[in-house]
């Protein structure tokens, strides 16, 4: 039997003047499911989750969490959500414990229950021994972990994490990803936004790809990769006019997509290995000195490229 949906959003819309930030998004996240919202900066991820969490009034559409509609007039419905904003949303001049106690009170926790939950989440994020230090004295990674702890404090049904690894070192990033992974396995519904394809692939049961406010694709990793058909991804590294090489490649038979990223041309092709010689020949013709060619397994990056015509990193 499928797990019950915790978050249901229907036809969610938001515009700022002439700019449409979110254009009719539908999504559901079930109990115990980790859902990744993958897209470049400015794609509409933060606007979407701000509406899902009730801090931004949508222009249209509806959201329910744990069966209760999220509206401006019913703040109580937000108690089912643990929201972790992209910024470090903590008071820097207060300790982690003081921050947690304040936000815990806003969630209705009091007395011994509040103290217990504060201690529990501090242990969960590995900050118990630094609990009484001011946030401003923490490293970036520790601040991120404290930021997440606030979202877990009141044991929500849905945890919403908005790019929680932005700007942290690899070690802290791994710790955060492990913690989120564990929470999902414990049965929490998790909505996780990121523009890092690797995070979405590692953590998420399902991924929604968002671009310019539109959910362009949604499904499990396998389902999304299937959209590429039999296509391979080839990466041609070299020096010289890479733009001309990308243009030349697009004209070749068997090349579906070609985009320049990080000193290389990323291609989506049919029959990757067979085409390598043709690609090298094209590079020589446009004056690109090839320094390496790699045939890579298809991933969500390739799916994004396939769906939007742009590389995810470029779009970010």
């Amino acid at each position: 039997m499928a797990a019950a949906p915790v978050l249901v959003a229907r036809r969610l819309r938001k515009a700022y003047g002439d700019l449409t930030a979110v254009a009719g998004i539908d999504l559901t996240v079930a109990e115990g499911e980790t859902y990744g919202l993958l897209g470049p900066n400015g794609a509409g991820k933060t606007t979407t989750i701000s509406m899902l969490c009730g801090v931004l009034e949508p222009d249209g559409g509806e959201v329910t969490v744990a069966g209760r509609a999220i509206t401006a007039t019913d703040p109580g419905a937000r108690a089912a959500i643990g929201y972790v904003p992209q910024e470090i949303a903590l008071y820097p001049d207060l300790s982690a414990r003081e921050n947690l106690q304040f936000f815990g009170k806003l969630q209705g926790l009091r007395g011994a229950r509040l103290d217990d939950r504060v201690s529990a989440v501090l242990a969960t994020v590995g900050l118990a021994d630094r609990a009484d230090d001011r946030i401003e004295g923490y490293s970036g990674g520790m601040q991120r972990r404290a930021n997440i702890a606030v979202g877990l404090l009141h044991e929500p049904r849905l945890l919403v994490l908005d790019e929680p690894t932005a700007g942290v070192d690899p070690q802290s990033r791994n710790a955060i990803l492990d913690a989120v992974d564990a929470l999902g396995r414990e049965g929490l519904a998790v909505l996780y936004t990121t523009h890092y394809m690797e995070e979405a692939e590692r953590l998420c049961d399902r991924v929604g790809i968002i671009d310019t406010g539109v959910l362009v694709a949604e499904g499990t990793r396998r389902e999304l990769l299937d959209q590429l058909g039999t296509a391979d991804r080839v990466r041609v590294e070299g020096t010289g006019p890479l733009d001309r090489l990308a243009a030349a490649c697009r004209a070749l038979d068997g090349v579906a997509e070609a985009a320049v990223t990080d000193g290389a041309v990323d291609l989506t092709v049919s029959g990757g290995r067979r085409l390598i010689a043709v690609l090298v020949d094209a590079a020589e013709r446009v004056g690109v000195a090839v320094t390496g060619v790699e045939v890579v397994e298809p991933d969500l990056e390739a799916v994004f490229l396939h769906l939007t015509g742009r590389a995810l990193r470029d779009a970010s």
Binding site: S50, C53, G54, V55, A72, P75, G76, A77, R78, A79, I81, Y83, P85, Q86, E87, I88, A89, L90, Y91, P92, F103, L106, Q107, G108, V150
Partner: peptide, 15 residues
């Protein structure tokens, strides 16, 4: 600016 306002407003409290 600090980002705390959005977190406070995400709690079950009215503006």
């Amino acid at each position: 600016r600090e980002g705390t306002l959005v977190r406070v407003r995400a709690a079950p409290v009215t503006d």
